[in-house]
Design a protein around this nucleic acid. Structure first.
Lengths: 191, 191
DNA sequence: TGGGAAAGCCAATATTTTTGCGTTAGTGAC
DNA sequence: GTCACTAACGCAAAAATATTGGCTTTCCCA
């Protein structure tokens, strides 16, 4: 006589598992920050003091792990888009912040790894979701001041997309370029 | 007595080398087209009837080979941007062509692999250079007709970039989206 | 033709990935 | 508390992939 006990089969968030996960995330961050070129599971595992098998079991490949770390880091630091007082000023200052952020070599490494991890269509991109919220803020402030403003989609398509596109294809990005994009977006809403 | 003979030390375009190269390119194309998920050097080598070492010697990694194949394919099919008779019509038809092109799963696979291959800054992106030429054509035709037209850079930044951005991040793309981008670009030059 | 080197192949080695299975340690039930 | 259950980790062996040294083929040019 066997009684199959019905129980909540769930994850295990506490204790050792979380410690291991934290160690792995930290290790990845250190390696990427140090500019290590060959980031493999064995390398990460050694630095985290963990068995490589654990990594292979939990993630399909290195890119998937890098994506997870990236998303975690991006959702954690929730700085708001700068508030300068005008739409053009807000957009320009925000573009500057984005440029200095994504022009960092390790951020580029993360982004490219993320792209490699994608295999099938998704409805939204976690990495740029934060950007979407920030765009929302800037636009709302403009509306409150009675200024005409682009839509959220327009900001994503014509400011965020070109910037990320360039970083991903390893093309140079600077503040002047960001400002040009801002001018284009503003011209768009006057058209 | 040794005489170091000064000779053109160059590549070797003919004979076996070119046959091997062609076989490799073909093999990659077939594998990508067939949707094979794990494309490794041994797999490619077997299909091409070549020793894997040849691949390791010639390319640093699979992504580098995929990039080469991609660039070759893109520069080969040199269809011109459609000529409808108006700037808006040209841009819309061109956007449609791009959407149907890059929405294909194997193209997305190529693009993502390319991105993974990039490690250091480059001055231009071979894959989108063809797009730049096409943009140039559309803009020149508009100018010839006396129409106001965006700059080449604007077309790249606000039409090409958002489209590729979406494909790379595995976000859905359709013709309606392309048309929205075209409308934004046109609004921009009126602003 | 024939010298010289580019490009291939083969074989040995290193590294990474995969898999089966024993062990550790969170978690809920009592 | 302690017990049963099992998710998650570790270990070790095997498979696959990547790397490297040295030899052979075959283009290319004189």
């Amino acid at each position: 006589m066997v009684i199959v006990q019905e129980r909540m089969i769930g994850q295990r968030p506490g204790g050792r598992s979380s410690r291991v996960l934290a160690a792995i995330h930290t290790a990845v961050g250190e390696l990427v920050g140090a500019g290590v070129d060959r980031i493999t599971f064995p390398v990460i595992a050694e630095r985290a003091g963990v068995n490589p098998t654990t990594l292979y079991r939990r993630w399909n490949d290195v890119n998937a792990l890098l994506e997870e770390v990236t998303v975690g880091a991006l959702t954690r630091d929730g700085e708001a888009a700068p508030d300068v007082g005008t739409l053009e000023g807000d957009l320009a200052a925000w573009a500057d912040a984005i440029v200095t952020d994504i022009a960092r070599p390790e951020r580029a490494r993360y982004l490219r790894a993320m792209v490699g991890a994608r295999t099938e269509l998704v409805s939204h991109c976690a990495v740029t979701d934060r950007r979407r919220e920030q765009a929302r803020d800037v636009i709302d402030r403009a509306h409150d001041r009675g200024e005409a403003a682009p839509t959220e989609g327009q900001v994503i398509d014509h400011l965020i997309s070109p910037l990320y596109y360039r970083v991903i294809f390893a093309l140079p990005v600077d503040e002047e370029y960001g400002h040009r994009l801002v001018r284009d977006v503003l011209a768009m809403i006057r058209g």
